[in-house]
Design a protein around this nucleic acid. Sequence first.
DNA 1: TGACGTTATACCAGTTCTGACATATCTTCC
DNA 2: GGAAGATATGTCAGAACTGGTATAACGTCA
Lengths: 95, 95
Amino acid sequence: MKKLKNGWVQGSAQEFLELSDADMAYIETKRALAACLREQRVKRHLTQTELATRLETSQSRVAKMESGDRTVSIDLLLQSLYRIGTKRRQLFALL
Amino acid sequence: MKKLKNGWVQGSAQEFLELSDADMAYIETKRALAACLREQRVKRHLTQTELATRLETSQSRVAKMESGDRTVSIDLLLQSLYRIGTKRRQLFALL
DNA sequence: TGACGTTATACCAGTTCTGACATATCTTCC
DNA sequence: GGAAGATATGTCAGAACTGGTATAACGTCA
């Protein structure tokens, strides 16, 4: 992290938050799965509420899933994707 | 599930346990990641105890991870794989 | 502007997962 | 058989996740 004369510092978010490569990989995986879920939903012209009904959960949780919220696990994302018919070979590239 | 004259029935484990395709996909994903973890460990000539130390966890949890135990999440498996240097690209070779 | 449909955020009780420890079951030697 | 190293299984308190509910914020159209 490089210090500049004006008092600010220069560096990546990864450096600032002191995230390891493993942390980054995990976060990026989650982000990709979350994006995939939204993509699938939009492609089917469903609202979060409608998708929530099919997944037997709530709209708020769908919103959190799609935003890769801290309180959402990759397990939940994967299971949700599988339940709406996503195939494994479509996903492993995202892992 | 087909019933036989001798009283037994014929059918897959999936049918017997009434698992959905989504359940199956999830279980299979977990199994693949678990196998990958073991493979990586063995390739490096590490014992479960040694790997546990590197992952800052216990030997018993490593054993559970490698066996795809019910009490182990895909999150834990993925994070563990990333922490020992597995790249995301390597994971889609699992299919 | 306000009503309405959609998405985002906050909170919490119940469930599940995690790490740690103890113990049991292999495996491979002698 | 018995010892020693490795792996598997059981249990449990504390942490993290999940679903539900409430509510806030956003977008759009009359």
